[in-house]
Design a protein around this nucleic acid. Structure first.
Lengths: 143, 143
DNA sequence: CCGATTATGATAATTATTCTCACGTGAAAA
DNA sequence: TTTTCACGTGAGAATAATTATCATAATCGG
């Protein structure tokens, strides 16, 4: 359960935290902004402060429960850290986000870092392009 | 000359634009923020508005003269688009930025995009780690 | 050199995020 | 259970980065 997750990382189990984690858990929204989380909760009747959302997200990230991404031309988005690591490809036209994992690239990154004298701790790889999804062609960035 | 560059991309040749381009041209500052450009120009006696710096940078980027990067935990930085494409590795301790190019990764990205049905137009790859530079060990993020 | 167009500097406005603070709540201990 | 109190919370102020506004000024084709 979500309460477990919170306890495991040393965070008190509170209503706002559970609500936010619960929202991120719904597969319907793999990548959400602080704003959209706040909006969805508020619209479904919850009373929560935007600051609380930001606070919780920062804590979740520090605890490794979620990951933060900053895609071009958009706000910062958060996603649950579930399953294996992956990178993203974003459609510059409709905003759709797909995930992928490529071992060749991952290995290569480590080699490069080593060669340059860095101890690799993280990386951010995002591809941008136009997708061929059925809803894409005319669609705008999202609202 | 810099005036040429501006004319070539259809921008009027103005003093602020020349100054900014000139600053970026100096190899001493491969990656600069809008703020640092503004500060350096102001400190060397120029009279320029911060808004003008942002405007010029946006235009230069649109024209392909410069590239914009948004590294974790820092402001947006700009660099001259000179020479071949490259990606970055950033030291999370001292903020030093190194550049690298890896054909294997580049090729792989294109293949991945194609496989996922995207027409790749751009990508952002940044590695993060701790460097072993002589000035690093104790140094802080930069001031 | 002139005038229409575009750029500029100063500053107000916006946007995203963080801080402040009085009050509320979770959970360890009694 | 109740108590206790460190920690969490909501509301709104504060900050930081960036963008818009607007009156003035500079560019450049004719």
């Amino acid at each position: 359960m979500e309460s477990e997750e919170l306890r495991n990382v040393g965070l008190k189990v509170t209503t706002p935290r559970l609500k936010i984690l619960g929202l991120l858990e719904k597969a319907t929204a793999r990548h959400m902004t602080a704003e959209s989380i706040y909006r969805q909760l508020t619209e479904s009747g919850e009373v929560i402060g935007l600051a609380t959302v930001y606070r919780a997200l920062a804590q979740f990230e520090a605890a490794g429960l979620i990951t933060r991404h900053h895609f071009e031309g958009g706000q910062t988005v958060y996603e649950l850290e579930r399953g294996p690591h992956h990178d993203h490809i974003v459609c510059v036209r409709c905003g759709r986000v797909e995930e992928f994992y490529d071992k060749v690239i991952e290995d290569r990154q480590r080699e490069i870092a080593t060669k340059l004298g860095f101890n690799l701790s993280d990386h951010a790889l995002t591809l941008y392009g136009e997708c061929s999804g059925p809803d894409c062609a005319g669609k705008k960035k999202q609202g």
